[in-house]
Nucleic acid binder design. Sequence first.
DNA 1: TTAATTATTTGATTTATATCACATTTAATA
DNA 2: TATTAAATGTGATATAAATCAAATAATTAA
Lengths: 226, 226
Amino acid sequence: MQNCETCIIRSKAVNTLNPKELRFLMESCAETTYNPRESIIKEGMLSSHIAYLKSGLAMVSKKGVKGVDQILKIVQPGNYLGLQTILFEKVNQFSVTALDKCVVCFIDNLSFKELISRNNQFANELLLFLCREELTYFERFVNIHQKQIAGRIADIILFFSEKIYANALTFEMPLSRGDIAALVCTTRESVTRAIKDLSEIKTIRVTGRKFEILDLARLKKINQSG
Amino acid sequence: MQNCETCIIRSKAVNTLNPKELRFLMESCAETTYNPRESIIKEGMLSSHIAYLKSGLAMVSKKGVKGVDQILKIVQPGNYLGLQTILFEKVNQFSVTALDKCVVCFIDNLSFKELISRNNQFANELLLFLCREELTYFERFVNIHQKQIAGRIADIILFFSEKIYANALTFEMPLSRGDIAALVCTTRESVTRAIKDLSEIKTIRVTGRKFEILDLARLKKINQSG
DNA sequence: TTAATTATTTGATTTATATCACATTTAATA
DNA sequence: TATTAAATGTGATATAAATCAAATAATTAA
């Protein structure tokens, strides 16, 4: 059993719970640690719990018609993972894989639903969470097709720099070239070439998985212009 | 003021309201009728209401980096339109346009939020609605890149036949060739060509906007195989 | 350390689709 | 009904990116 009362990365939703509800949550909560590349949620498997990422970095992916996995998003600590599956209790509609060492809290579906119907502030926060997520997908959907590969690569480099590594200009990319391809809807080879192109015009410097942004303004421009 | 009490296309969420709450909803509700191609919600404009599609067909679209509008989805009666904007009260993140003659109910944001916090069954139904929507987007996102144009066109023909026109094999397409392009992420010309290709192998017959499915099995196969 | 995988890079080639330019049909308006 | 405008179709061409194939580089296992 976890101590949700002292958890420092509690979700906004959990923050709305009263002491009694929080104890109820604690009693139906279990914490697990994952190594990099370990599967946290497996698409097609029976789902019984909602996952909450306490620490580490994870990715959400889903199989398409060709059987190839596409990465839907990178998840940071403080986010729910299987929220959308509350509906389809039966099977997971996507996979979640650890990129770092990850600490994940699991809450069983039933208890989670119980909290939703008990506390409407809790439900409200979840609503906001889902709305925000959906708008992010809209953005992503609309842009991924209107940009060519260099633009999309610029986009994810900026994403990691800004969103994941707090505006660091140098960072270690947790994704392989193949992962990046699955994230921006292209092939491994095209990712390599796009990175090479961006390097040749001195916008970035890349050695293996170490990424360094040399010309932030230009990178942003490439991201915008596609 | 509308009569929500007798509305036959009430959302599952609204069905959870008690008589008092329903009256509250009615008092903050206004109904408007739109002609085909009329704008119901305009991206970038200040948003103050949540829209609910009572009848007709509408499309949700959003501008990408290139300034080109992409169609995110086709909305059928019984669905909320601006739900995701509850968060960003300021501006609409997408546009909604009528395809048919549409009847739309508007509820002001504040009253809607009030209902969420008053009735947790209401909030719960909205949660389920958003979850279902998100899973649909996942599906769409993952597949649109793994299929080539013929497969995507097959997909939307099947979508209209099955989902919009109750499995009718003959139907009037409410979208122009350009709209279809915006929906499946391609160009007007490529849509024309794909339709021509499908027609030549006698899978469909198309005259103007009249679509007829001749070989359903084959169309489904093309949809699956990409 | 060496061998054996696995990941990445690079070049050559192919292909699906975008783009351009123009013809034709259909719908809207005077 | 004639005139204009908008939507659609069609061919030629260009191009971004996929695919194929093979060489390096980097990990992992023995």
